[in-house]
Design a protein around this nucleic acid. Structure first.
Lengths: 240, 240
DNA sequence: CGCTCTATTGATAAACCTCAAATACAGTGG
DNA sequence: CCACTGTATTTGAGGTTTATCAATAGAGCG
């Protein structure tokens, strides 16, 4: 984790950081238009901020021209977002939605830039983080480009389980409120296809899902599907 | 452009940079496995490098498990690549192919990291650059997710014309050797579909293409296709 | 002028989206 | 606790886009 690492190594530096941030709490469902200058946390004076999630989860989404919502990623505790606000003048249309009560701290653009100038460690940490991000997006680009829906949904489940999975008696429970629409939007398919596949997997005992919960019972099998090179495992997916 | 900006503002700093880089020339078709430690520019001692293109063009690609090639991006003069090598220990499987004779300068991992520590401007410039990159990938992720092949190919042409376009008498000539396969790989379709569409556009006078050259005659119309919300302009694409 | 590699073109089929309709569910107020 | 209502999900049928396959044609090269 970026910040804690940093603060552990150099507690003195964090004093300065501490002074310049703002704490905020968002209720479930609350939306923050990251792209709108005047709207970022409702503080007109200096809206260009980046932030760190302390607790809860945010969903970062973007709306296409045709009204289709795409989920960029989910972020949870210890993850940062909106670094772009710090580096770029121009705004860009991304929305963050709290899917749980979420606590964040934010830095103003100039304060954060100043910090990075003053303490190159911060800049390098940011760079490191942003490069991880590129890896992620690029990987998902690949999946979309090469893989079939079945594999992509499987990967989505794996991804979610890595980020918000909790070991429970009968598998890995994904501790986030997710709709079918969310899952579909996260891997570039439709709610219908997602529904069909999830139900099939449930029948086969791979997962256990209801409206509000999702548990992976057989992770190995899900991984197998994600990594199958497109060939059908067992029966045809769309039959039965 | 990152480096020139930097050198103009602080010529003294560049002296240090100058000393620590390596110049290399690649012939057309030469491949560089960026992911293989021992192979990056054939200098085993310290393979983790990032580089800047001085002249020519490189194609950055990644091979999928199923053998499908995906083009990550093309880079030309003044663009950097492989920053990931500087920030991450782990290697990752990307290949750069020179599609023209290409001259680059490279920095060793440690040298570049040191530079960034010493001169935060460099780190911030890198951060800025990497964030631009995220924007690009993310945008292409969107396109793949929401748009039809026709629009994506149109966007690819626009993108290429922005990067390597030269104004000529009858349009914008794209100054890069591109095969149909390249165009297909760049926007996530097949050579067949790309061929069909390009030929159709040629018949309609939008572009002029042969095996080795590609000229956009009617950029406005290409933009219109790229931004059409999926509805057919004129006849059905696959007929005629 | 054969040989190889790339491009074209037609036919076919697969994957998946779209639409419509039915059903299940969660929350709410009585 | 139950009926009610609005939303989320499921499911089927049909259609579209685009990949795949196969075969041919063309370009460049020694």
């Amino acid at each position: 984790m970026f910040l804690s690492e940093f603060t552990e190594n150099q507690p003195a530096l964090f004093q300065g950081v501490e002074k310049q941030h703002h704490k905020k709490l968002f209720a479930t469902g609350q939306r923050i238009e990251l792209g709108v200058k005047e709207n970022l946390f409702q503080e007109g004076e200096c809206a260009q901020k980046c932030f760190l999630v302390l607790s809860g989860n945010l969903k970062l989404t973007k709306l296409s021209d045709q009204g289709k919502e795409i989920i960029i990623r989910y972020i949870g505790p210890s993850e940062m977002a909106a670094i772009i606000s710090v580096m770029k003048e121009k705004t860009y249309p991304v929305t963050a939605v709290a899917i749980k009560p979420t606590e964040i701290i934010a830095w103003k653009r100039d304060a954060f830039r100043h910090l990075m100038y003053q303490y190159p460690d911060i800049a390098l940490n940011m760079l490191d983080m942003v490069i991880d991000r590129i890896g992620d997006v690029q990987h998902r680009y690949f999946e979309l480009s090469c893989e079939m829906v079945e594999q992509r949904i499987a990967r989505t489940l794996i991804r979610l389980s890595q980020q918000a999975g909790k070991n429970v008696q009968d598998g890995i429970y994904i501790d986030m409120p997710l709709t079918r629409q969310d899952i579909a939007d996260f891997c570039g398919t439709t709610i219908y296809t997602a529904s069909r596949l999830l139900n099939m997997w449930q029948k086969r005992g791979l997962i256990q899902c209801s409206r509000k919960s999702l548990t992976i019972m057989d992770l190995l099998m899900v991984i197998k599907i994600a990594e199958s090179h497109g060939e059908q495992l067992e029966q045809n997916s769309y039959s039965a």
